[in-house]
Design a protein around this nucleic acid. Sequence first.
DNA 1: ATTATCTATAGATCTATAGATAATGC
DNA 2: ATTATCTATAGATCTATAGATAATGC
Lengths: 238, 238
Amino acid sequence: MATTSRAERPPRRSRAERRADSIRQILDSAEELFAERGFHGVSLKDIAAHAGVHHTLVHYYFDDKNALVDAVFARRAPVSSKRRADALEAYEEACGGTPTVEGALHAFLDSDFELYLEHQEEWKHALALGAQVANTPDWGADIMEKHFDPVVRRLIELLKRALPGCSEADLFWGYHFVTGAFMLTLARTGRIDALSGGVCRSDDLLAAKQRMAEFMAAGFHAIAAQGGEGAASDRSLP
Amino acid sequence: MATTSRAERPPRRSRAERRADSIRQILDSAEELFAERGFHGVSLKDIAAHAGVHHTLVHYYFDDKNALVDAVFARRAPVSSKRRADALEAYEEACGGTPTVEGALHAFLDSDFELYLEHQEEWKHALALGAQVANTPDWGADIMEKHFDPVVRRLIELLKRALPGCSEADLFWGYHFVTGAFMLTLARTGRIDALSGGVCRSDDLLAAKQRMAEFMAAGFHAIAAQGGEGAASDRSLP
DNA sequence: ATTATCTATAGATCTATAGATAATGC
DNA sequence: ATTATCTATAGATCTATAGATAATGC
C-alpha cells in the first residue's frame, strides 16, 4: 500500500533463500510435469517456464535431465519409505508376534494414502510420478529398486509370517498384484470416473484406502489356500 | 544358389504386397518401440530405422505421429476385445443364469493371457503397449475408453449379477484394482524378477494367470461383505 | 569476491513436406 | 499411368555450454 520507490525497496530474500527458492521451484515443476507427461514428454525448457526461471538455470543447478529426475525422487522417496518402515515396525510391535495379512497391508498401504490425504498439495504429484515410474519398463526400474525395495522386502517378511504355509512365489505374485493396483490408484488417470459415470472418482483416495487392504488381503488368503495348484509353472525353475 | 543376374531377377512381390509389407513393418516397429519407451520416447526416425524403411515413408502411410499410434491400436484392440466379448458371452451361457465372480474374471482375464501364451511373438508388444497407455494420464485415456470400455461394462454387469448385494462403488473400485494389477502384469517391467531374486519372472504370464482371477475374486467377495463400511466417502456424492 | 541469473549460440534432432526418381502394372 | 520410395530441406525445438551481467555479502 505504501509507495515504495524501486531503489529503496529493501532486499527481502538472502542469496541462500533465493537459491533454495529456485531449486525448489524447479523440482516442483519437474515433479508435476514428469508426473503428467513422463520423462520424455517434458523438455527442460517446459520445466523452467513452469517454474518461472530462466531455462539455463536448470543446468546451473542440475547436471542434466537425468540428474534432475534423480533429484526429484531423492527429495520424496526417502520420506515415503521412512514412514512406511516406521508403520511396519510399529505394527510388528503392536501385533505381538502374530501379524495378519490385513494388518501388514494396512500398515504398508495406508502410510502412502495418508501422505495424499493429509498433505495433498505437497504429495499428489510425487505419488503420481512414482506410479508412472513403476509402470514404465525403460526408465525407473533402478529408481524403484533403489528407493523402495528395502521396505517392500520388510513387508514380504511380515506376510511370510502371517501366511506360514504360503509359497514364496505366491507371496511375490500377491505383492505384484497389490503394487499394480496401488500404482494405478496413485496415478489417478481419471478412467474410473468415466467408466463409472461419476460413481467413483480417481482422486478419491479415501475410497480406495477403505477398500484396498481388505481386498488384497483376501486375495493373499485365496492363493495361499489354493496352494500347490499354482505350482505348475514354478517347476520350470532350476 | 543359382546365379541370378540382377537384371533378370523376377519381381517376387507385387506392389500391393510391398505396400502391405512396409505398413506392417512400420506398425510392428512402432508397437514395439512405443511399448518400450512410450509415445514421447520414440521418434519417427527411430521407428523407420527399426522397420528398415526410409523415414519419410512413415509420413507417406500415416498422417502424423498421433495417427500412427492410433493405427497401432486399431490393429490389435478390436481383436482382443472381440475375444473377450466372446469369452464373456460363452461364460454367460455356460453358467446357466448364475454367474460367479471367479467365472466372470476368468473369462475376462484369461482371454488376454492366452493371447500372450499362445501367440507370444505377435502379441507381447501390443499387450505391453496397452499396459503403458492404461497407466499414462495424458495420452490414451481416450484410447482406452474407445477400445476397451464397452467390454469392461459387460464384465461389470456380470459381476453385478454375481454379487447382487454389492454397491456400484465397490464393483468399480474392485475392477480398478483388477485392471491395475493386470496392466502391471502385461507391462512385464522386470521388477518382480529382481525383487524375488529370480523366484518369479515378469514374462511368466502362466504363473500370473494361475493366480490372478482367484486372487481378485476373493477381493471382490471381501469388499462386498465389508459392505456399508466403505460407504463413508460415497456420501460426498450428490 | 562470490554467485545467481541472463545472453547468445552451438550442434543435434525432430516432425513434416515438396518434389524427384524408380519400379510396377495397365 | 500410377504409386512406392528417396532426395533435399524447412523450420521448430531440444540439450547443453561459454561467457557476460547483476545482485549479494564480505
